[in-house]
């Protein structure tokens, strides 16, 4: 690893000031699982590290506008095991549970994972399907944007130099909704997905037709991808097995996978269609079950 200066300020304002002073030379560190690994591999050589670990309150998981707000410094394990997350958005707890190993989940943070902008990660997929928004702070103030607009390219986010992710706000699902996360990984359980899909389905008040669906995919492009064509096929429709399968098939047009040791691009495209169909079917079934449960 290269030599660097290290600061662990106690307040966010102090951290932003240090970042502003050092510009591109500085990197933010939280859990360190991504950054230290990249530094050990000499992929990045920052001359200044600003740790957010000593800033109190950045790790809160709290209720917000009927949904949830995950503080940037909350660990994956904290989200996975949070009673509040498990009760309100079990699909999100389950998604965080699928990341790497318990040991890594003790270290890796919500905000660090987003800022890393690795398209193979699990949480962004489900967060996008849930309509999450990311909170960003910089010297000039606070801004918020839909998470799907945050990811710009391979390991590239919308963060400007000097900005940090402070949290992510996740709306709750409407009544009569279902959600699912399907991680296809034919290798070991702690691996990145070969293809990952998250889907949410909300029903019309009649409980028979789909009002809206959202579907997002990971590991099939340079960023997580939202499949709007598939969503449009389902909106307003009386949904059956054929339509769910057709919606799954339609994601072929949205994905642009890279060939790697987890599979060829063609194979991943095939699996994206299959797994999207499965995720939508699970979300649809869960939505229907939630209607039956209340009648």
């Amino acid at each position: 690893m290269n030599a660097f200066e290290y600061a662990a300020p106690r307040t966010l304002d102090e951290a932003l000031a240090v970042l502003g002073e050092h510009g591109d030379e500085a990197r933010v560190i939280a859990g360190g699982t991504a950054l230290v690994t990249m530094m050990r591999q000499r992929l990045v050589r920052p001359s200044y590290l600003v740790s957010l670990r000593e800033i109190a309150g950045l790790d809160r998981i709290e209720a917000a506008n009927g949904g949830l707000r995950l503080g940037a410094l909350a660990t994956h394990r904290e989200v996975e095991t949070s009673p509040r997350v498990r009760e309100r958005l079990p699909v999100l707890a389950e998604t965080f549970r699928r990341v790497a190993s318990v040991r890594i989940r003790h270290m890796a943070t919500v905000g660090g994972a987003l800022a890393h902008a690795d398209p193979n990660q699990d949480p962004p997929v489900t967060l996008i399907a849930l309509g999450a928004r990311v909170e960003i702070r910089g010297a000039s103030g606070r801004r918020e944007l839909p998470l799907e607009e945050f990811f710009r390219d391979y390991y590239e986010s919308a963060l400007e130099p000097g900005e940090v992710v402070t949290g992510v706000v996740v709306p709750s699902l409407p009544a009569a909704s279902g959600a699912a996360y399907v991680k296809f990984l034919p290798r070991t359980a702690d691996d990145y997905a070969t293809v990952a899909v998250a889907a949410t389905v909300s029903l019309e008040p009649d409980g028979e037709r789909c009002r809206t669906a959202r579907i997002a995919l990971g590991s099939v492009g340079v960023t997580p991808i939202r499949a709007r064509a598939a969503e449009a096929l389902l909106a307003g429709q009386r949904v059956g097995a054929d339509l769910l399968r057709a919606a799954g098939e339609s994601v072929r047009g949205a994905v642009d996978p890279l060939s790697d040791h987890r599979g060829s691009a063609a194979y991943k495209r095939e699996m994206a269609a299959v797994m999207a169909g499965r995720a939508l079917t699970q979300a649809w079934d869960a939505a229907r079950a939630s209607v039956r449960g209340t009648r």
Partner: peptide, 8 residues
């Protein structure tokens, strides 16, 4: 528990 090889 953590991985001490990637912790500073």
């Amino acid at each position: 528990m953590i991985s001490s090889c990637i912790a500073l």
